[in-house]
């Protein structure tokens, strides 16, 4: 009984006792979730068309942010700096595809995965060698303050005292725009449709004249672009230093939940992970387990889901034949 009281009644009681707290946590969790999703989308774009599990996505986010921040530090106006780092990302993505992955075509997934970890090491070293290893600020005037609802007439009228970080709203907004933009791109543009064809069947798409090599370059450039966007949003929250790369790890459970091939899945997965890990940390982890449960919660949750759906929440059913 004691157990139930501590671990179930307590936390849920607290939620019921102070509902605005739940709202606050959910919004903050969504902000995190969309950030994870922005990284995860980069994974999905590449995995979908070339079955490469690109672990370097986190390092690419770091590299984009590093270029951007270093240019700003040199006094370059933000739009030029942004354009420059976007260009660098596209070039980098192109190079990785040409130099690393092209020679590895046909190898098993594990080798490709390991190669992208190698890329991740290289990018980290390369970025820091270029711009120095000290943490940098990436400030381009995006909103990063906090909104206290109680300061506003409507908040006061509702008696709602919660805090919403503008960077969370930004992440949510940018994430939605990204998903919408990518949807339109894949659905209506010529290249996008070609990419979907490639994703469905390599050989068939080649036979109808889709240049596979060019398509992969497009795909990598696209993931470089998403890395750049993720970096810009991330930069409003924190300094740019190598722990940003760990983001790539958090994107893994997101991918598992969302399925490796679905962009909306990545967003939904991101939201589930972002919200649930923050809720767990706030109501269980911090008061009952000594905190820092965000370290593992996402992974344990993903593992738990996998036990029931081994192909992920939105993944296609795996059919095995001998």
């Amino acid at each position: 009984m004691n157990f139930v009281a501590t671990y179930l009644l307590g936390p849920f009681g607290e939620m019921i006792a102070y509902p605005p707290g739940v709202l606050e946590t959910v919004i903050a969790g969504l902000g995190n979730g969309f950030l994870y999703a922005l990284v995860a989308i980069g994974f999905v774009i590449i995995f979908k068309s070339s079955s490469v599990f690109n672990f370097a996505q986190g390092a690419m986010v770091f590299f984009a942010a590093l270029n951007f921040a270093a240019m700003l530090k040199l006094g370059v106006p933000w739009y030029l700096a942004g354009a420059f780092s976007l260009l660098v990302m596209v070039v980098l993505a192109f190079t990785v595809e040409r130099v690393v992955l092209r020679p590895l075509v046909g190898q098993d997934g594990l080798s490709l995965f390991m190669a992208t970890i190698g890329v991740s090491f290289f990018i980290e070293g390369f970025g820091e060698a270029l711009w120095g290893g000290d943490p940098k600020l990436l400030k381009i005037g995006l909103p990063e303050d906090a909104i206290f609802t109680i300061d506003y007439p409507w908040g006061e009228a509702l008696g709602l005292d919660i805090i919403i970080q503008e960077s969370d709203l930004l992440a949510i907004g940018v994430g939605l725009v990204m998903v919408l933009g990518l949807y339109v791109f894949f659905q209506y543009s010529r290249v996008g449709r070609a990419l979907r064809a490639v994703a469905d069947d390599h050989t068939a798409s080649m036979s109808i004249g889709i240049p596979l090599n060019q398509m992969w370059v497009v795909v990598w450039a696209l993931s470089g672009f998403t890395a750049f966007v993720a970096a810009t949003v991330w930069g409003t929250k924190i300094q740019i230093e190598p722990t940003v790369i760990n983001l790539a790890l958090k994107a893994l459970p997101v991918l598992i939940l969302g399925g490796l091939t679905s962009i909306p899945g990545a967003v939904i997965g991101g939201c589930i992970i972002g919200v649930s890990e923050l809720m767990f940390e706030t109501y269980w982890g911090q008061p009952l387990f000594g905190g820092a449960t965000t370290e593992w919660f996402a992974f344990v949750l993903a593992a738990f889901f996998l036990l029931f759906r081994p192909q992920g929440l939105f993944g296609e059913k795996i059919i095995e034949r001998v």
Binding site: A28, N32, K237, I238, G285, Q286, A292, E295
Partner: peptide
């Protein structure tokens, strides 16, 4: 006590909400 894990030092949102 509010521990900040070394692997995600720059993500302290939950701590400060708390």
């Amino acid at each position: 006590l509010y521990p900040v894990p070394t692997t995600s030092m720059s993500d302290q949102k939950s701590i400060w909400l708390d």
